[in-house]
Design a protein around this nucleic acid. Sequence first.
DNA 1: CGCCCGTTTGAAATAATTCAACACCGGTGG
DNA 2: CCACCGGTGTTGAATTATTTCAAACGGGCG
Lengths: 241, 241
Amino acid sequence: MSDLSPLLRKLEAHGKFPKEDREAVLGLPFTTREVAPATYLIREGEPPRVCTVLLSGYAFRHKIVANGGRQIVSLHIPGEAIDFEGIYLNCSDHNAQALTRAEVATIPMAAIRRLLAERPTFARAVLLDMLVEASVLREWVTNIGRRDSKTRLAHLSCEFATRTSAQGVAGCTYELPMTQEQIGDALGLTSVHVNRSIRALESEGLITRNKRLLNVPDLARLREAGDFSDLYLHADPQHAV
Amino acid sequence: MSDLSPLLRKLEAHGKFPKEDREAVLGLPFTTREVAPATYLIREGEPPRVCTVLLSGYAFRHKIVANGGRQIVSLHIPGEAIDFEGIYLNCSDHNAQALTRAEVATIPMAAIRRLLAERPTFARAVLLDMLVEASVLREWVTNIGRRDSKTRLAHLSCEFATRTSAQGVAGCTYELPMTQEQIGDALGLTSVHVNRSIRALESEGLITRNKRLLNVPDLARLREAGDFSDLYLHADPQHAV
DNA sequence: CGCCCGTTTGAAATAATTCAACACCGGTGG
DNA sequence: CCACCGGTGTTGAATTATTTCAAACGGGCG
């Protein structure tokens, strides 16, 4: 049986919870289900009644623009709650879909709100999570707005490698479970250009590939190429007060 | 004498505070100062000891990339706190500067944290503010990643018009207090291209200008051109639970 | 085996940048 | 008072990055 421990692990990343908060999180009511790739988890415009947490697998959020284009605005790894905004906002401003086959838990939003009011450490962790999410979004704005395609791609690779390994999901060889079209939608590029950028990084020896299994022989060099600093991820516990 | 009422007004946008929270916010210790345009309010890498609130004037946050480019990641109007992330993160991941001459209040971060622990309505408003900020950032990612220059510019104009008029700062003729270079840095474009896009909007009759004073004769048309929906601003009190 | 989705590649078209020059305007100092 | 100055806005021409369109390829799966 699966439980909410991935969520707890994520929330405790910046500081361990006291016993009561720990138990309160693990004691939240929830149901789980297994979903196929591309299953919608949130739909823009709908009121969120439940909070969805990724227990395993990956997910992404996206928005659609007038000309039909799609922009992926965030990627999510196991342990992450993908709709904390539903806590106080009653209208979703974006969509979310599973990227891979995934196991998700759904928690009634009311239970989350109650915990927020009763358990200060939990409330703190949720706010902290939002602060970090905003920081990541600022970096995405910067990445898309001011870096060329190769740099953008290298940056995204570094971010993914860093986040997954911090959560113990993957090491320096990892699967980037996205099609090139999805990568393009995340970087504000077309899939064709993503393909050319990937091959450029490959030919420079910055990455090697075996279908979607990425290998980064020299992370330092890729970070250099991607203008990547992990400061914005605020993953270092020392960086939280 | 200026006080923190602009901050209170902003925090109360989604729901009035009870008397105690109200007084607690207005009773926060603070100092004010007048700053010139371009004055740095936050520097990347530095630990935030104080929380800076805009009482009047405008400000922006930005990040610098390896090739020297700058990306503006958010704009701020009176009443907004520009570094809530300092609440729990002890290292700034971006810079902030005044856009215009501005009056800013600085509040010791410790006082904010104390209030967060003691006044639930205040804590809720701060979390809500972060949720909305994240939503705006997602829209910026989308705007920069997937819309062409004219649409991007129209969108930014609509956002600015909507946000300022919601705070009672301006109406449908308003000053966009940015140079074309700054607009470019906000949209991921060059100043030259911003200029051409502005003139294109002008020639289509979507905006008229008198130096930096913008006039929008038909907001509905500009919204159409900018693929703008104000849903993501979550300004409607009904949208908050 | 054949089909479908995703990848790869080339060539042409387009959006945006770069570089350069000039106009404008408010402010400052002679 | 005028001349100059620096920052901003405007414009054109050349260049570059990225997109678009189209076609072929490959591999996994029914």
